[in-house]
Nucleic acid binder design. Sequence first.
DNA 1: TTAGTTGGTTGCATTTTGAAACCGAATGGA
DNA 2: TCCATTCGGTTTCAAAATGCAACCAACTAA
Lengths: 150, 150
Amino acid sequence: MKRTRMDEATCPIARTLDVVGDWWSLLIVRDAFLGKRRFGEFQKSLGVAKNILSARLKTLVADGILASVPAADGSAFNDYVLTPKGRDLFPVVIALRQWGEKYGFSSGESFPPLVDAACGKPIAPLEVRDAAGKPLMPQDTILLPLPQEA
Amino acid sequence: MKRTRMDEATCPIARTLDVVGDWWSLLIVRDAFLGKRRFGEFQKSLGVAKNILSARLKTLVADGILASVPAADGSAFNDYVLTPKGRDLFPVVIALRQWGEKYGFSSGESFPPLVDAACGKPIAPLEVRDAAGKPLMPQDTILLPLPQEA
DNA sequence: TTAGTTGGTTGCATTTTGAAACCGAATGGA
DNA sequence: TCCATTCGGTTTCAAAATGCAACCAACTAA
């Protein structure tokens, strides 16, 4: 009756969700992208219970998404910073953000915009493209059978 | 002590995760992209308990991601098909998939590839771009403060 | 020195999840 | 026509995750 694991799934989506598919992990990663690094910063920003945050940070570190390093301010505490593996979640976070921007707000509401630091303009909507760069719709793609190894 | 809701969050990412941030919803959406439409198809593919699947389909329909329509085969049952809002999750699913492809498999393993139906070649890695089309790294972006309404 | 902050852990109540049993309606076969 | 089986669920109940508050140890500031 444990939570169903998907780490043996043949599907890459399932394997990703097995690691970051819970309620808090991707929000922690989001905050890490925004420069937060201390336990207390995450806790205050997210409003998550400290035991939950503690458990999540542990698994994110164990999964190689965050690294626990000595604090930059010289204090005796730890900073939690994104590894390259964690930074590669950027498109995931942006995709979630853009869908939320489009569907998560009623017309009267607004949200803090994420913009290009250089030009100040909003980033472009993500597009799924083929090898040549042409945009692809969902129905333009097919899942091939698993290749058999020798 | 219920699960903390994030539907009031100012962050679009949090609002998205409030809707599809659980263990199963995005896998149901994935299967819907692959053409699955019947309760039994989802259940067999996912191996999820039927009560959970039933609850998830209900909320996905309530959230406007799936629509419940009369079955295409003329039987008395229902099909669950993606709405335009659901189809707009395509970049999310692809982002999760590409991260899983890169980090979710050991070197000996392989996974079914998702390819361009027209040319048979794998789809390109998603890239976050600025308004002009130039690729952006995470540190090239900044979150602006919430704009004040009049 | 002592009060407060930081970064947790522990304990417990509530909620969610998961497995299996159950059930009615639709379907199929003899 | 009758019976069995599948389909699409709901109910029941145990196990696990979540959330809150209390606690605590180490560091820090006054």
